[in-house]
């Protein structure tokens, strides 16, 4: 087993073997979710804090359920109803929660590096659930898990990420994970949202949608992150949809065994046609199921032992 990290802060610093360790562990946890009794005692007595300083529903619920299925106790802390509104700093908030003897902190924050910052002084484990436009490691792990489950491998696959790349932490984490495991990643979208500089991460940038999707084994569609865009990055939603949306006509020109993915929430009729979102090549809901398994695996792994001894019989 090649995992001995206390935190999961990003994908960038993980080795391919560490990524595979998470994916293999997640496979076993997915099976737990399919049993009549969907709960194991691996984190019994542990306290998990969901520290969500930026709004999120699906990721928070996924982490919450993952922790509960591992028998941990979960505290949800959201920015709207918190002491942060009263002027407390993130550091003080986290240290107060630690004073309650919390063991694992799951943090979502609008500032890049917030999880790294917390990991420097908290005694517990820190899991990044999305920091600004930087990284969203568990999303990349669940996307990779889903691709591997369908295609049996990652190496050599053509993966196209289509949409708002610039403001997307999902894109960044996916690019790291996929390129580390040997996939060929192509980025496509409006030039204002897909700067050429991304080629430094080892992927191809194109503005020709038809070329980007023709040979793709996987198409991962990203939502326009209106909340992060400080100015208009393209003329209109209608124009974006006609130029870059996955319409039925475009879908008809993709590979027969293409996988259509989307981290959610989807905007039907904008980045993806409604029927395409529900077709049999779409694995959007499987991603949600797999997200739970991957997050159970991550919680299990970061909580793991620290001593170098053999497992006794």
């Amino acid at each position: 087993m090649s995992w001995n990290r206390k935190h999961l802060l990003d994908i960038q610093s993980l080795s391919p073997l560490e990524i595979l360790a998470v994916l293999d562990t997640a496979k076993a946890f997915k099976a737990v979710g399919e049993r009549a009794i969907k709960k194991v005692p691996a984190l019994r007595g542990k306290t998990v804090v969901n520290l969500f300083i930026e709004p999120s529903t699906r990721t928070r619920i996924s982490f919450e359920l993952a922790a509960m299925r591992l028998t941990a106790d979960v505290i949800n802390f959201t920015a709207e109803a918190s002491s942060l509104k009263k002027g407390e700093s993130l550091k003080d908030t986290a240290r107060n929660l630690e004073a309650l003897n919390a063991d694992i902190f799951i943090i979502r924050h609008s500032a890049t590096g917030a999880p790294h910052f917390l990991s420097r002084f908290l005694k517990g484990s820190v899991i990044n659930a999305g920091d600004g436009a930087h990284e969203h490691p568990t999303q990349a792990l669940l996307d990779t898990f889903t691709i591997r489950e369908h295609k049996g491998r990652i190496e050599g696959l053509n993966v196209t990420i289509l949409g708002d790349i610039l403001y997307s932490r999902v894109a960044r984490s996916n690019i790291w994970a996929l390129t580390k495991l040997g996939a060929k990643v192509t980025l496509c979208g409006p030039s204002t949202l897909v700067p050429k500089v991304f080629e430094q991460m080892g992927c191809t940038v194109t503005y020709d949608v038809d070329a980007a999707i023709a040979n793709a084994d996987v198409i991962n569609l990203l939502r326009i992150q209106h909340e992060r865009q400080k100015k208009a990055m393209f003329p209109s939603i209608g124009e974006y949809s006609s130029l870059f949306g996955l319409s039925k006509a475009r879908f008809a020109r993709t590979k027969k065994d293409v996988l259509i993915m989307h981290p959610g929430p989807i905007n039907r009729g904008v980045e993806i046609n409604s029927e395409v979102a529900d077709c049999d090549r779409s694995v959007i809901l499987e991603q949600v199921t797999n997200g739970l398994a991957v997050r159970m695996a991550v919680l299990f792994l970061v909580n793991g032992g620290k001593g170098p001894q053999e497992v006794a019989h």
Partner: peptide
């Protein structure tokens, strides 16, 4: 039957490999 998720010594051991059941 995988036992890694039910061990009582998870903190004292290196993270055990999880096997399938």
């Amino acid at each position: 039957i995988d036992v890694s998720m039910h061990r009582d010594d998870l903190e004292h051991q290196p993270t055990p490999e999880v096997h399938s059941t």
